[in-house]
Simulated scan of single mutants.
Amino acid sequence: MIVDDAAGVLTWPGCRNVRDLGGTPTTDGRRIRHGALLRSDRLTPADVPAARAAGVSRIVDLRWARECERDPSPFASDPVYRNAPLLADPLGYNPPEDSYGPMLDHNAERMAVAVRLVADAPPGAVLVHCHAGRDRTGVLVALLLGLAGVGPAEIAADFARTEGCGPLPMRNTLTHLDAHYGGSAGYLTAAGLDPALLAAVRSRLLPRAGPPGQAGPRQNTTST
């Protein structure tokens, strides 16, 4: 069964951290469209029907290749699937506990690859995930939401909805992003992405029509 509640949380059989970012407010009064961007932890075969029912047209798996070899995605042979490791392997730095700033600093090209996969995905929902759906997924989602005009407080609040997370590391990360790169657009432009691709992300995530503040009705779906 798949249940989409008021907080965007989805109940998928094998996932602990899966949700729809639809309804997240932007600073100009709009909201992220429902069914445009989903985030999760690793997928299992039991989650395949749920992902199909959600209209997922692209899955961006942010795990290292060795993780995927050890624990293959159930979508590995499906055209919707892309593996785009978000981090160098090995890392090459010691990650602090209170910020993902170094993750941004050391992996800009990889971040750009993942964002490009979101931008050029076929019509439908894009699902991004890593192993736990927390660190790598959280940083990529923060960049995507920032491009769409979601403010730092809302991005940090979404991050804190993930199991085992609090808002402070994301707040610190966004402060670093603004101070060193001028925000998501500046960071990704410096990483080599064309402004047209950034615009494509915004177009995918934001409402196509309707008055400000409307993201469309939230869908309650059930699949067995």
Rank of each mutant, 00 (worst) to 15 (best):
G186A: 04
P207A: 03
G192V: 03
G183D: 14
P195E: 03
L205S: 02
P211Q: 09
R218T: 01
L188E: 04
Y187Q: 10
L205K: 13
T221M: 12
T222R: 15
N220S: 06
P207Y: 06
G213E: 13
S184E: 03
P217T: 07
G182N: 11
A209W: 08
A209D: 11
P212L: 10
G210R: 06
A196T: 02
L188T: 05
L198D: 02
A191W: 13
P212F: 08
L198R: 06
S203C: 08
T222Y: 14
L188R: 08
L205W: 13
A215N: 01
G213N: 09
L188G: 01
A190G: 14
T221A: 13
Y187S: 04
G186R: 13
S184D: 00
S203G: 13
Q219K: 04
G182Q: 12
A185G: 06
P195N: 10
R204A: 00
P212G: 11
T221L: 15
Q219Y: 04
S184P: 07
A200P: 04
L193C: 14
Q214L: 10
A199V: 09
Q219N: 04
Y187D: 03
A190T: 09
A209F: 10
G183H: 10
G210P: 12
G183T: 10
L197Q: 03
S184Y: 04
Q219E: 06
G210C: 11
R204N: 02
G182I: 15
P212Q: 03
P211G: 04
V201E: 02
S184G: 09
A185E: 15
V201H: 00
P211Y: 08
A200N: 02
G183S: 12
L197W: 00
A215V: 04
P212N: 06
R202E: 14
R208N: 08
R204E: 00
A196S: 10
G216K: 00
T189I: 01
A200M: 02
Q214F: 10
A196I: 01
G183V: 14
L206S: 14
G213W: 13
G186S: 07
Q219I: 15
A196W: 01
G213H: 12
A196K: 08
Q219R: 14
G182E: 03
G216D: 01
G182M: 13
P211H: 07
S203N: 08
P195S: 11
R218V: 13
T222I: 11
A215E: 00
A190N: 09
T222E: 11
A199F: 05
N220D: 13
P195W: 12
P211R: 15
T189P: 02
L197P: 00
D194F: 05
A190K: 15
R208P: 06
G213A: 09
A215I: 02
R208Y: 05
T221P: 05
G183K: 13
G183C: 14
L193W: 06
A196V: 10
G182S: 12
S203Y: 03
A191I: 12
G192L: 07
A191C: 08
L193P: 09
A209T: 05
P211K: 14
L188H: 10
G213Q: 13
T189Q: 07
A200T: 02
